[in-house]
Simulated scan of single mutants.
Amino acid sequence: NPKVAEAVNEFLTKQDGLMLGICNGFQALIKLGLVPYGEIRETTVDAPTLTYNNIGRHQSKIVRTRIASNKSPWLKATEVGDTHSIAISHGEGKFVASEEVMRQLIANGQIATQYVDFNDNATYDIDFNPNGSTYAVEGITSADGRIFGKMGHSERIGEHVIKNIIGEKDQKIFESGVNYFK
Protein backbone atom coordinates (compact mmCIF):
# COMPACT_ATOMS: atom_id res chain seq x y z
CA ASN A 1 0.00 0.00 0.00
CA PRO A 2 1.64 3.26 -1.08
CA LYS A 3 0.16 5.22 1.86
CA VAL A 4 1.55 2.76 4.39
CA ALA A 5 4.94 2.77 2.66
CA GLU A 6 4.95 6.58 2.72
CA ALA A 7 4.06 6.64 6.44
CA VAL A 8 6.79 4.11 7.27
CA ASN A 9 9.34 6.09 5.26
CA GLU A 10 8.33 9.32 7.03
CA PHE A 11 8.58 7.57 10.40
CA LEU A 12 12.11 6.48 9.61
CA THR A 13 13.40 9.60 7.89
CA LYS A 14 11.60 12.49 9.55
CA GLN A 15 10.85 11.14 13.00
CA ASP A 16 14.11 9.25 13.64
CA GLY A 17 12.06 6.18 14.53
CA LEU A 18 13.17 2.69 15.46
CA MET A 19 11.72 -0.61 14.22
CA LEU A 20 12.06 -4.07 15.71
CA GLY A 21 10.82 -7.28 14.14
CA ILE A 22 11.03 -10.54 16.05
CA CYS A 23 10.34 -13.89 14.33
CA ASN A 24 7.36 -13.22 12.02
CA GLY A 25 8.13 -9.51 12.40
CA PHE A 26 11.62 -10.21 11.04
CA GLN A 27 10.01 -12.03 8.12
CA ALA A 28 7.90 -8.96 7.37
CA LEU A 29 10.87 -6.59 7.63
CA ILE A 30 13.04 -8.64 5.30
CA LYS A 31 10.29 -9.29 2.74
CA LEU A 32 9.65 -5.53 2.57
CA GLY A 33 13.37 -4.73 2.27
CA LEU A 34 13.45 -2.73 5.51
CA VAL A 35 16.30 -5.00 6.56
CA PRO A 36 18.91 -4.87 5.29
CA TYR A 37 18.14 -1.89 3.02
CA GLY A 38 16.44 0.54 5.43
CA GLU A 39 13.52 1.21 3.11
CA ILE A 40 10.53 -0.51 1.59
CA ARG A 41 11.51 -1.75 -1.85
CA GLU A 42 10.61 -4.38 -4.37
CA THR A 43 12.40 -7.61 -3.67
CA THR A 44 14.74 -9.04 -6.25
CA VAL A 45 15.83 -12.60 -6.90
CA ASP A 46 19.15 -11.96 -5.14
CA ALA A 47 17.70 -10.19 -2.08
CA PRO A 48 18.31 -11.79 1.33
CA THR A 49 15.32 -13.68 2.67
CA LEU A 50 14.06 -16.11 5.28
CA THR A 51 12.98 -19.58 4.22
CA TYR A 52 12.18 -23.04 5.60
CA ASN A 53 14.42 -24.55 8.27
CA ASN A 54 16.83 -27.19 6.93
CA ILE A 55 14.90 -29.94 8.70
CA GLY A 56 11.68 -28.87 6.97
CA ARG A 57 9.67 -28.47 10.15
CA HIS A 58 9.11 -26.23 13.14
CA GLN A 59 11.81 -25.88 15.80
CA SER A 60 11.15 -24.69 19.34
CA LYS A 61 14.01 -24.59 21.81
CA ILE A 62 16.52 -22.38 23.59
CA VAL A 63 19.57 -21.41 21.53
CA ARG A 64 22.78 -19.52 22.21
CA THR A 65 23.33 -16.31 20.32
CA ARG A 66 26.30 -13.95 20.27
CA ILE A 67 26.31 -10.21 19.67
CA ALA A 68 28.28 -9.79 16.43
CA SER A 69 27.72 -6.03 16.14
CA ASN A 70 26.22 -3.55 18.58
CA LYS A 71 26.07 -0.56 16.24
CA SER A 72 22.26 -0.73 16.43
CA PRO A 73 20.53 1.44 19.03
CA TRP A 74 18.63 -1.73 19.97
CA LEU A 75 21.90 -3.32 21.15
CA LYS A 76 23.63 -0.38 22.87
CA ALA A 77 23.47 -2.09 26.27
CA THR A 78 25.47 -5.06 24.97
CA GLU A 79 29.09 -5.66 24.07
CA VAL A 80 30.29 -7.46 20.95
CA GLY A 81 30.89 -11.05 22.02
CA ASP A 82 28.15 -11.16 24.68
CA THR A 83 26.18 -14.41 24.53
CA HIS A 84 22.55 -14.98 25.42
CA SER A 85 20.21 -17.93 25.82
CA ILE A 86 17.20 -17.08 23.65
CA ALA A 87 13.94 -18.91 22.88
CA ILE A 88 13.21 -19.70 19.23
CA SER A 89 10.00 -21.06 17.73
CA HIS A 90 9.71 -21.11 13.95
CA GLY A 91 9.50 -23.23 10.83
CA GLU A 92 10.75 -20.59 8.39
CA GLY A 93 13.72 -18.95 10.07
CA LYS A 94 16.61 -19.84 7.80
CA PHE A 95 18.38 -16.65 6.71
CA VAL A 96 19.82 -16.91 3.21
CA ALA A 97 21.85 -14.40 1.22
CA SER A 98 24.43 -14.45 -1.54
CA GLU A 99 28.14 -14.20 -0.76
CA GLU A 100 28.15 -10.68 -2.20
CA VAL A 101 25.35 -9.56 0.11
CA MET A 102 26.99 -11.30 3.06
CA ARG A 103 30.26 -9.45 2.42
CA GLN A 104 28.34 -6.15 2.41
CA LEU A 105 26.47 -6.97 5.61
CA ILE A 106 29.68 -7.98 7.35
CA ALA A 107 31.54 -4.88 6.16
CA ASN A 108 28.68 -2.62 7.30
CA GLY A 109 28.35 -4.30 10.72
CA GLN A 110 24.76 -5.28 9.88
CA ILE A 111 25.01 -8.85 11.16
CA ALA A 112 23.84 -8.14 14.67
CA THR A 113 23.50 -11.62 16.18
CA GLN A 114 24.59 -15.14 15.31
CA TYR A 115 23.83 -18.63 16.53
CA VAL A 116 26.82 -20.03 18.42
CA ASP A 117 27.99 -23.25 20.01
CA PHE A 118 29.21 -23.72 23.59
CA ASN A 119 32.60 -22.25 22.59
CA ASP A 120 30.88 -19.10 21.23
CA ASN A 121 31.71 -19.99 17.63
CA ALA A 122 29.21 -19.34 14.86
CA THR A 123 28.19 -22.69 13.43
CA TYR A 124 26.04 -24.58 10.95
CA ASP A 125 25.60 -27.42 13.48
CA ILE A 126 21.83 -27.98 13.77
CA ASP A 127 22.13 -28.42 17.53
CA PHE A 128 23.03 -24.72 17.73
CA ASN A 129 21.86 -23.17 14.42
CA PRO A 130 18.31 -24.53 14.40
CA ASN A 131 17.44 -23.52 10.86
CA GLY A 132 20.73 -23.63 8.93
CA SER A 133 21.07 -19.87 8.51
CA THR A 134 23.87 -18.61 6.26
CA TYR A 135 26.85 -17.58 8.39
CA ALA A 136 24.72 -18.58 11.41
CA VAL A 137 22.82 -15.28 11.16
CA GLU A 138 20.09 -14.88 13.78
CA GLY A 139 19.52 -11.13 13.33
CA ILE A 140 20.44 -8.28 11.00
CA THR A 141 19.96 -4.52 10.92
CA SER A 142 19.53 -1.77 8.39
CA ALA A 143 22.73 0.09 7.52
CA ASP A 144 22.04 2.76 10.16
CA GLY A 145 21.05 0.13 12.74
CA ARG A 146 17.65 1.64 13.55
CA ILE A 147 15.76 -1.28 12.03
CA PHE A 148 16.52 -4.63 13.65
CA GLY A 149 15.13 -8.01 12.63
CA LYS A 150 15.85 -11.22 14.53
CA MET A 151 14.42 -14.71 14.80
CA GLY A 152 14.91 -15.35 18.53
CA HIS A 153 12.17 -14.30 20.93
CA SER A 154 14.04 -11.80 23.09
CA GLU A 155 10.73 -10.79 24.63
CA ARG A 156 10.35 -14.20 26.30
CA ILE A 157 12.20 -13.27 29.46
CA GLY A 158 11.23 -12.73 33.06
CA GLU A 159 11.96 -13.78 36.59
CA HIS A 160 10.03 -17.05 36.20
CA VAL A 161 10.75 -17.77 32.52
CA ILE A 162 13.26 -20.47 31.46
CA LYS A 163 14.70 -20.52 34.98
CA ASN A 164 16.35 -23.90 34.43
CA ILE A 165 18.42 -22.66 31.48
CA ILE A 166 21.92 -21.34 32.14
CA GLY A 167 23.16 -18.13 30.58
CA GLU A 168 22.09 -14.51 30.29
CA LYS A 169 18.64 -14.16 28.76
CA ASP A 170 18.09 -10.39 28.66
CA GLN A 171 19.70 -8.72 25.64
CA LYS A 172 18.43 -5.38 26.99
CA ILE A 173 16.87 -4.70 23.58
CA PHE A 174 13.77 -2.99 24.94
CA GLU A 175 15.70 -1.00 27.54
CA SER A 176 18.08 0.16 24.79
CA GLY A 177 15.16 1.12 22.54
CA VAL A 178 13.67 3.30 25.29
CA ASN A 179 17.05 4.84 26.11
CA TYR A 180 17.50 5.83 22.45
CA PHE A 181 14.78 8.44 22.91
CA LYS A 182 15.99 9.81 26.26
Rank of each mutant, 00 (worst) to 15 (best):
F148W: 10
N54L: 15
Y37M: 09
K71D: 08
V45G: 01
E6D: 08
Y115T: 12
I162T: 00
W74K: 10
D82H: 13
I22P: 11
K31P: 03
I88N: 00
T49S: 11
K31N: 13
P2R: 07
V101I: 04
A7Q: 13
L75S: 08
T65C: 04
V63E: 09
R41A: 08
I165S: 00
V178S: 08
E155K: 01
I162E: 09
S176G: 04
I106L: 15
F26S: 04
K150C: 14
V161M: 05
Q114W: 03
T83Q: 03
C23I: 14
S154Q: 06
A87S: 14
L75A: 10
S176W: 02
S72T: 01
G17Y: 06
P130S: 02
E100D: 12
S154W: 09
K150F: 09
A47W: 01
G177N: 05
P130E: 03
N121M: 15
R64F: 10
V137L: 03
G21E: 06
K71L: 07
G93E: 02
P2V: 07
Q59M: 13
N24Y: 15
K71N: 13
G38D: 07
E99G: 10
P73D: 04
I147P: 00
F148C: 00
F118V: 15
T49N: 13
A136Y: 11
N131S: 05
I173R: 09
R64C: 12
H160W: 11
L12T: 09
I162L: 08
T83D: 06
N119W: 13
E79L: 10
G56P: 14
Q27R: 01
K182C: 02
V4L: 09
R64T: 15
P2H: 05
E175N: 06
A112Q: 05
I166P: 12
R103M: 04
I106N: 15
G17D: 11
I30R: 10
G21Q: 03
D16F: 10
G167M: 02
K150V: 13
K3G: 02
L32G: 10
N54R: 14
I86F: 00
G25A: 06
K169S: 00
R156M: 06
L34A: 00
I22C: 12
M151V: 07
F11Y: 13
K172R: 12
Q15V: 04
G38T: 09
R156W: 04
D144T: 08
F118M: 12
N108W: 09
G145M: 07
V178K: 07
N119T: 15
L32K: 12
H58F: 15
G145A: 05
L32P: 07
M151E: 08
D127H: 14
Q15I: 06
L75Y: 04
P73R: 05
V116F: 08
G139I: 01
I22W: 10
P36N: 12
S72F: 03
V101Y: 04
E155V: 00
N164W: 08
I111E: 03
D144Q: 12
Y124F: 12
T134C: 03
D120W: 10
N179Q: 13
A68M: 06
Q104G: 06
I67L: 00
H160F: 11
T113R: 11
R103N: 14
I140C: 01
I62D: 09
V178C: 07
L29Q: 00
R41F: 10
G81I: 09
N24R: 13
P130K: 01
D117Y: 12
G158H: 05
D127Y: 11
D120V: 08
V96Q: 11
A28W: 06
T134I: 09
D120R: 14
D125Q: 11
N164R: 13
S98W: 11
